[in-house]
Amino acid sequence: MLSRKAILGASLLASVALMSSSAIAQTIGFSQIGSESGWRAAETTLTKSQAEERGIDLKFADAQQKQENQIKALRSFIAQGVDAILIAPVVATGWDAVLQEAKEAEIPVVLLDRMVDSSDDLYLTAVGSDLVHEGNVAGQWLVDELGGKDCNVVELQGTTGSSPAIDRKNGFEQAINGHDNIKLIRSQTGDFTRTKGKEVMESFLKAEDGGKNICALYAHNDDMAVGAIQAIKEAGLKPGEDILVVSIDAVPDIFQAMAAGEANATVELTPNMAGPAFDALDAYFKDGTKPAKFIQTESKLYTQNDDPQKVYEEKKDLGY
């Protein structure tokens, strides 16, 4: 207990000293969830490259999907006296104590991509896409594409209980609500992974008359869609034609599938969360401008008309 207080004190001093020497953040800690998906890896790559461009010393900590690792990382950042902290929280709850510690150490915290259930005065701002909106964009695309035709949709959910899974489901359902031609007939979790996406899609196909009963697939992320596309092909159907495929994230592999006509649309979840976060921090350190509590990134829709091959080439080296 005593030693932690001592460390806290020391880190306070250190951060004060650093802040006085420069108005712009020099050292920023980044606690990443892990690299469970290509998108996550791209976010890491882009955060690192954005930091490099701006001359920021980025301290990177990979939490391997564990909240306790993130809390440890945050405490270590605080102890090291970083100027600011970026965190992509693995879960929504349980952050109050460590965010309070950061606040007491006067280190601003920016949430990336996911929200927490803590009071919003414990962090500076949150950069993220509106997950409900993403689902909405995907649903709206399907409504427009069908133009009133009857359609049975199957849904591959993200990890059960995770906020992207809940919000993307809600957004999609809002969009198709009131369009009686669209029916959501099956919904099951694919844990955001290709393997499970493929396995679950196989069971959907078996359960729905070999897939003849399915007109569209909505996947909460592209990885599950990529797995499902393989399952559809192995069942002897044409993904993109027999079964429309719409998903979210816009990772490079889905553009390849789109270029091959096997996927129809994806909603981009930009991996560049760090750019807006660094901008907000710069402004904050320069003249104390407090940013809005939520900075929403754009949820751009890509379809087969958007030259998917070109987008693929642009994206493929981002570390997806």
Binding site: E36, Q65, D191, T193, R194, T195, Q230, D253
Partner: peptide
């Protein structure tokens, strides 16, 4: 088999 199935090696989930 797991990698060949999804045409990719997923170090986190395999």
């Amino acid at each position: 088999i797991a990698a060949a199935d999804i045409r990719g090696a997923d170090a986190n989930n395999a």
